[in-house]
C-alpha cells in the first residue's frame, strides 16, 4: 500500500509539470495583459511595469524563471495586488476556503447519506419521494439563488445571521456560506446513496444476512452500508478538491475572503502569477484527493488491493 502511494505521488510530478506548462502558455494566449485598463498607460510607463515584473523578457525565459521560482516554492508577486505575493494571498485565503469547503462537504456526506439511506429503505414510499423531491430541488436551484435567499431570510427578516463578511471566522458568519455550499452536495450525495443502497440491499450477502436473522440495523449499517458507500467515496475525491479550493459565487455573495474568487478574478485581470498559483493549488488538491479516494477504496472494500 505504501509503495502504491509513493508511486502515485511520483507520477504526480510529471502531471503537475504538464499542467503548469499548459496553464503558463494558455493564459498568455489570452489577449491583453495585466496592465490594460480603462485608463490607458503611456508606452514608457507600461514598459517600466513590464520590466519590473519581468514581462519584457522573451516568453521562454519567463517560463524558465517561473519554473525555477516554483521549485523553490516561490509563486511570485501578484500583479494586481503588488502589496502581496501569491503565496501570501493563498496563506490568508486558503485556510478560509478549506474551512468552509470541509464543513460543507462533511455536512453533505453526513446528511446526504442519511437521507439517501432513509429513501432507499422506504423505496417508492412517502419518505423516498420527499427525499427525491428535496434532492432534485437542491441540485437544480443554483447557488446564486440560494445564497441571496439565505441572506434575505436569515439575515434581514429573522436577523439570525450576518449578511456577509468573514467576521474573523465567527461561527455565525460561516453558517450561510456553508449551507449554500452544502445544499447542492447534500442533494447529490442523497441521490447517489439512495441508488447504491437499493442495489446493495438487493445483493446476495444482504439476503444471506437477513436469512441468518440479523437485526435490520445490523444488516443496513454493518453490511449494506459498506457496499453502498463506494460511489460516495469516489464522489468525495473530486468534490473535496472543488469545495476546498473555494467557490467564486459563494465567496463573492457572502464577501468571504477565500481563494475561490481568485480563479475568476485572476484570469479576468490577467494576473498571470495568481492564475498559475490557483492552477497549481487546484491541481494539487485534485491529485491528493483522488489518491485519498483510491486508498479509501481499499479500506472500505476488502476486494480492492493495491500491491
Amino acid at each position: 500500500m505504501l509503495r502504491y502511494v509513493f508511486r502515485r505521488l511520483l507520477t504526480a510530478i510529471p502531471t503537475l509539470f504538464v499542467i503548469v506548462t499548459m496553464a503558463f502558455f494558455l493564459i498568455r494566449v489570452a489577449p491583453g495583459g495585466p496592465f490594460n485598463q480603462e485608463r490607458g498607460l503611456s508606452p514608457e510607463i507600461k514598459a517600466n511595469l513590464e520590466a519590473q515584473f519581468g514581462l519584457s523578457d522573451p516568453l521562454w525565459l519567463q517560463y524558465v524563471h517561473y519554473l525555477g521560482n516554483l521549485l523553490r516554492g516561490n509563486f511570485g508577486p501578484s500583479y494586481n495586488m503588488p502589496d502581496f505575493t501569491v503565496t501570501e494571498l493563498f496563506a490568508k485565503g486558503l485556510p478560509i476556503s478549506v474551512q468552509l469547503g470541509a464543513s460543507a462537504l462533511l455536512l453533505a456526506l453526513l446528511i446526504g447519506s442519511m437521507l439517501g439511506t432513509v429513501a432507499a429503505l422506504n423505496q417508492n414510499k412517502l419518505g423516498d419521494y420527499t427525499v427525491i423531491a428535496l434532492a432534485t430541488a437542491g441540485s437544480t436551484i443554483p447557488t446564486f439563488v440560494i445564497a441571496p435567499v439565505i441572506q434575505l431570510l436569515f439575515g434581514l427578516t429573522w436577523k439570525l445571521l450576518p449578511i456577509g463578511g468573514w467576521g474573523d471566522g465567527a461561527f455565525i458568519n460561516k453558517v450561510g456560506p456553508v449551507l449554500t455550499l452544502a445544499l447542492p452536495q447534500i442533494a447529490i450525495v442523497a441521490r447517489l446513496m439512495r441508488g447504491s443502497m437499493i442495489e446493495s440491499l438487493r445483493s446476495h450477502h444482504i439476503r444471506t444476512a437477513r436469512a441468518l436473522g440479523l437485526s435490520d440495523w445490523s444488516v443496513v449499517v454493518k453490511h449494506a452500508l459498506r457496499g453502498a458507500i463506494l460511489p460516495i467515496v469516489s464522489f468525495t475525491g473530486p468534490a473535496a478538491a472543488a469545495l476546498l479550493t473555494g467557490s467564486v459565487i459563494v465567496e463573492t455573495i457572502f464577501s468571504i475572503p477565500g481563494v475561490g474568487r481568485y480563479f475568476v478574478d485572476a484570469a479576468l485581470n490577467r494576473d498571470y502569477t495568481l492564475v498559475m498559483g490557483t492552477v497549481v493549488v487546484i491541481a494539487l488538491f485534485t491529485i491528493v484527493f483522488n489518491l485519498i479516494v483510491d486508498v479509501m477504496y481499499a479500506v472500505v472494500d476488502p476486494r480492492v488491493r493495491y500491491d
Binding site: L106, D168, G169, A170, K174, V175, L225, R226, I229
Partner: peptide
C-alpha cells in the same frame, strides 16, 4: 469501523464549523 467513521465525521463537522468562534468584545 463505519460507525467510527460516522462519529469522526460528526466530530469533524462540528469542529470545522466552530473553528475560530470568537467574538471581538
Amino acid at each position: 469501523m463505519l460507525k467510527n467513521m460516522l462519529k469522526a465525521t460528526v466530530f469533524a463537522t462540528t469542529m470545522a464549523l466552530t473553528a475560530g468562534t470568537f467574538y471581538t468584545p
